[in-house]
C-alpha cells in the first residue's frame, strides 16, 4: 500500500499543509480535506467543468488532477476570486446582474472558466464565448445569461485596462 504523503498546497495565496494518499484528486482534497467546497463535483470524469480551478493561472479540471501534481503550483479557487475587501470580481458581478445561473451548482466552475476565457482573449464575440465556454455544462440552461455576463465582464475589464 502506498504511504500517506505530506504536502503543501498554495491555494488562494495561502499555504495549506495536508497528509493524504497520492490518489486523492485536487477536487477531493479541496472539498473533503480542506473545506474549500466552492469548487463543485458534477461528474468526476472531466465531462462537465463544474470543478474548474486555476493552476498557475490556467483553467483546469480539479477532478482529473491529483492533489500531489499541484504541489509547488499556485492554485486559485472561487473562494479566492473576490478581492481581500470582499469586492466581487467583475465576472462574479456580471453573473449576478445577468442572472447567469439558477441552481448555482455549475456557477463557480463557470466563473473560474470565464475569468480565464477573458484573460486568454477568447471573449471576442458571442460565438467565441460560446465555444470557449462549452466545457462548462449548465443543466439549468443559463447559457444566454452566461454569454451576456462574460461579454459584459470582458468589456468592463478592457475598459478598466484602457
Amino acid at each position: 500500500m502506498a504511504s500517506l504523503r505530506s504536502m503543501e498546497l498554495e491555494i488562494n495565496g495561502a499555504q495549506y499543509a495536508l497528509t493524504i494518499e497520492p490518489r486523492v484528486t485536487l477536487l477531493d482534497a479541496l472539498r473533503e480535506n480542506l473545506g474549500l467546497t466552492g469548487t463543485k463535483k458534477g461528474c468526476d470524469q472531466g465531462q462537465c467543468g463544474a470543478c474548474t480551478v486555476h493552476v498557475d493561472g490556467e483553467r483546469v479540471l480539479a477532478c482529473l488532477t491529483l492533489a500531489v501534481q499541484a504541489e509547488g503550483r499556485s492554485i486559485r479557487t472561487i473562494e479566492g476570486l473576490a478581492s481581500k475587501d470582499d469586492t466581487l470580481d467583475a465576472v462574479q458581478q456580471a453573473f449576478i446582474e445577468e442572472d447567469a445561473f439558477q441552481c448555482g451548482y455549475c456557477t463557480p466552475g463557470q466563473i473560474m472558466s470565464a475569468v480565464a476565457c477573458i484573460r486568454e482573449g477568447h471573449a471576442g464575440s458571442d460565438a467565441e464565448i460560446r465555444e470557449f465556454m462549452a466545457g462548462n455544462l449548465c443543466r439549468c440552461g443559463a447559457y444566454n445569461g452566461i454569454v451576456a455576463a462574460v461579454r459584459k465582464a470582458a468589456q468592463r475589464i478592457q475598459g478598466a485596462a484602457a
Binding site: 467546497t37 466552492g38 473562494e79 466581487l88 458581478q93 449576478i96 442572472d99 448555482g104 463557480p108
Partner: peptide, 18 residues
C-alpha cells in the same frame, strides 16, 4: 436580482454534501 446570487457566485452557498 436573485437574492441568493451573491452567495452562489462566491462559492459560499452550502449544498448538502458541503
Amino acid at each position: 436580482l436573485r437574492g441568493d446570487g451573491s452567495l452562489k457566485v462566491r462559492g459560499a452557498a452550502t449544498y448538502a454534501l458541503e
